[in-house]
Structure formats: C-alpha cells, structure tokens
C-alpha cells in the first residue's frame, strides 16, 4: 500500500546527489528505511552536511551508494561506521574526503547561485591534494601572494531531513538548525519528515516564523513519528544509544548487517 513515505521516497532516483544531515541535526531514518525497503534506487552520491552517521552506513550497506562526499562518517559514541569503513577499504565506494566548512562553503555557493566559494585553510593538507575539483588561486584583491582554495558550488538533487513540526501549508520549523535551511536552499528538491503537523500557520507568529523554513523551499512533507530513531531529535528525544551499539556490533559483517535490517524492519513498519 502506498503511503506518505512512499510518496516522498519516489522522488529519489538512481544516480542522484542526495544531501543528508549531521547525526544530531534531524536524520530522516524512517524515510531512509523506506528507501532501502523499496530497493529501487542505486548509484547514489551522498553529500553529508557536514558529516554522516547511521543513515549513511545503512545506505552503503544496502548497496545503494557509489560516492560519499563527507568530512567524516561515524556512529559517534557507538564507534566507527562499519559498512562505510569496509566499503572504503575495499574500494567499493568512491570517497571524496572534505572538511566541514568546505561542505558548508559549497552549499553556500549554490545558495548564492555563484560558481564557487573561497575558503581559508586546507592548503598543504592531503584532503586538498586529493580533490582535483577544488582549485587554488591567488587572491586577486591582495597585493602580495595569497593562495586560497575555491570550493565549487554543491548542487544536491535532493535534500532530506527530519524536523519537529510542519504546518498544513508545508512550512517546516527547524529552530536553530540553520544548516537544514542551507541544504534546502542549495537543493532542487527537499523532502522533509516531521514528528507532527500543526493546524496553526507557522509563518503567522514571529516567534515560530524566525525558525521556519518556508514552504517555498520544501517539495513535500510526510508525518513520521519518532522518524529520526535511533538517532535523536533535538528538543524531542535523545539518541537510542543501546540501539546504535546493537547496530554497530551487528553490522561488522555484511551478513550481520543483512540480519539486523531484516529483524528491525518489522519494528519500524
């Protein structure tokens, strides 16, 4: 049976560049599980804003990812991301290592509709040495030599995240998690799951309007209670560290990962 999560998931197609949030920022885990269950998408290019966690590890484990652009992927206190680490070691995915502000800079360039954003730092690092797409130029406004790195604009096809609430018009309340807005500004399509849909107009009250991403940037919204689980959602619930540890232990092998995914599917359906 088709439901709202399926309607959102149908926007995600093979080969797309998908922007995903940091593990404490509102990770759409229910939507992620639905994408995996549907099983009709491959060859994704994930852009972690600016790092990834369980969501990234699961999509890699499910064989849906070809490229990961990130500043880090880990399960936080539960340890390293097992499917990510294995896929990088074996060369099954292409890794584009970055540093957090470089990813923010690339999204900002897309937000401003300019081709690149200059950024300090990075020079002399092996991160920069391995990124042929990042150019170094001399600051044209400086009298002396002043090399600076240019980060090309990052244009995700889709941005996905989970937030506390939306209203009927599709306005989404993101509070102080402004990087979620940055993802939406840069992406062509933005898909949001929420804990609750309110009957009031989030834009009508100055207090909520200040922390609201207007529906202008939001393609579609679906209700998903505890939709970030086992990650937490700021102001709503803490991460389920027991479950994250259980996943970390199970997903050490491909077989253990498959067993975990089969076993927990019924719980979230």
């Amino acid at each position: 049976m088709q439901d709202d999560l399926d309607r959102l998931a149908a926007h995600v197609k093979s080969g797309m560049r998908v922007a995903v949030p940091v593990d404490y920022g509102g990770v759409p885990m229910a939507l992620t599980r639905r994408l995996i269950t549907r099983g009709d998408v491959t060859d994704l290019h994930l852009i972690c804003v600016p790092t990834g966690g369980l969501q990234v590890d699961m999509l890699i484990g499910a064989g849906m990812v070809t490229t990961v652009e990130t500043s880090a992927v880990s399960l936080g206190e539960a340890g390293g991301a097992p499917r990510f680490n294995d896929a990088v070691r074996s060369g099954r995915i292409r890794i584009l290592d970055a540093t957090c502000p470089a990813i923010h800079a690339g999204l900002l360039a897309a937000q401003k509709a300019v081709p690149f954003m200059p950024i300090r730092g990075l020079l002399g690092s092996d991160i920069q040495a391995n990124r042929a797409d990042w150019q170094v130029m001399d600051n044209p406004l400086s009298e002396g030599a002043d090399p600076i790195v240019l980060i090309p604009a990052i244009h995700p096809d889709v941005a996905v995240f989970h937030a506390p609430m939306a209203d009927r018009a599709g306005n989404v309340w993101i509070g102080r998690r402004r990087e979620l807005a940055a993802m939406a500004y840069a992406a062509r399509t933005t898909l949001v799951t929420v804990e609750r849909i309110v009957e009031t107009d989030l834009m009508a009250d100055e207090l909520t309007a200040a922390g609201t991403l207007p529906a202008l940037y939001v393609t579609d919204v679906a209700l998903a209670e505890r939709g970030a689980w086992p990650h937490g959602l700021w102001g709503n619930y803490d991460p389920d560290s027991t479950e994250l540890r259980r996943y970390a232990a199970a997903a050490k092998t491909a077989a253990g990962f498959a067993a975990y995914m089969a076993e927990t599917e019924s719980e979230i359906a």
Binding site: V73, A98, C100, P101
Partner: peptide, 8 residues
C-alpha cells in the same frame, strides 16, 4: 571517520 573541521 574522517578529518571533520581540522583542516580549517
């Protein structure tokens, strides 16, 4: 995991 914000 990766370099996080260190390079900046």
């Amino acid at each position: 995991p990766g370099s996080f914000g260190s390079a900046y």
